[in-house]
Nucleic acid binder design. Structure first.
Lengths: 206, 206
DNA sequence: GTGTTTACATACGCTGTTGTTTGTATATAA
DNA sequence: TTATATACAAACAACAGCGTATGTAAACAC
């Protein structure tokens, strides 16, 4: 069984990406070898090198497959569109991110790999830059939402949208990190939704 | 020049630890070889293997040297002792951590290594556990401070100390991560103090 | 149906890295 | 003063992992 049809080839390509995710998660990115990944995918290194130039390219393929759609989701519906209640908009955005982590094993694994199973040096420094850019994009959109909220009088009087956005952004970064790192204990994972609600409630006029 | 006196030996031991920090920072932990570290320290691998069993042990030595004193500082003065204003106590604790990052190159470098230049797999998973334990210790102390603040009437009425502490803790985690990751831009680093003040101001009765 | 390309498996050579072993000059203890 | 332990340097053996080259059978184009 050697030459496969195009669809079959695409299937093994996907298998290799999935295998890479599993292996990266288990052994960390730099300790994962092409042999490990190939074995996990049930192929030989030949197949892996046919589809991907090297481990770095495979890493990027893995990352983009799940993360790019996720970023689109962030940018789209929840923040920009909301003509309704802007604060609820932000809250839904935060909840939605947690929800997508809870729903999708793949997303969870990739977040874990990106956060605690990857060293951001040399070729991977660009990835870190991308993360930062994405992060400041989120920050700006949160700020816009807070500005709309202020106009609508939903905020405590003298609170600056810029500062609020920064505070929420840091809360968000911290939440994601703790959520991912809290693997066995699962204390944070259960509380996450509560914490988001409390964080937003701090900002609301009552 | 072979056999050194005891003091000289201790000196080369320290040199090796410092060298390891530099190399870890530049190449990431797993891509750093004993040869790299030895060269950076101006010795041969023989010396490194004399002082440390392997790279893992060297990593722990590096980490403990700067981080353990820092943890002591956290646990001590700022949170427990404060019989004065508990909220200012928390604020000072947050400010103090940022300050120790700004003051000490070594601390900065180790934080960067721990956050984005290290893969927490196999032998290193225990390190992650330690970080989490330390983190929940901080959380508890923040909560105690908030409880004291509530008794003194410093807080907005119905705010639960437990929730406030979680929110501040996540803010803190996020702040540290962004501070460390924001290497060139330095947007966050300049704002950090402001952001801490704003975060605490959100909680204060006015 | 034949030629060419595809999608891999297999085999090879090379380099990098590790842990250990051996050598050695000197500090230190007796 | 001599013996021994120390603090390394230098050499060695072994393997792991990478990239590439080669083989090959089946898919696809014509």
């Amino acid at each position: 069984m050697v030459r496969k049809t195009k669809e079959n080839a695409e299937l093994t390509r996907q298998n290799i990406i999935h295998a890479a995710r599993e292996v990266f998660l288990k052994r960390g990115v730099s300790r994962s070898t092409m042999e490990h990944i190939a074995a996990q995918a049930g192929v030989t290194r030949g197949a892996v090198y046919w589809h991907f130039k090297n481990k770095t390219e495979l890493f990027h393929a893995m990352r983009e497959q799940v993360l790019l759609p996720l970023i689109d989701r962030m940018d789209g519906a929840l923040l920009v569109a909301g003509s309704e209640d802007p604060l609820t908009c932000i809250e839904n955005f935060l909840l939605g991110t947690i929800q997508s982590l809870e729903e999708s094993l793949e997303t969870r694994q990739i977040y874990e790999i990106m956060m605690i199973k990857c060293e951001y040096v040399e070729e991977f420094e660009t990835v870190l830059q991308q993360i930062l850019v994405n992060c400041s994009g989120i920050l700006q959109k949160i700020q816009l939402a807070y500005e709309r909220a202020r106009i609508k009088g939903q905020l405590h009087e003298a609170l600056e949208p810029a500062q609020l956005a920064q505070d929420t952004n840091l809360f968000f970064v911290g939440l994601l990190h703790m959520w991912v790192k809290d693997i066995q204990g699962q204390q944070f994972r259960q509380q996450a939704i509560q914490l988001i609600h409390f964080h937003m409630q701090l900002r609301r006029t009552h």
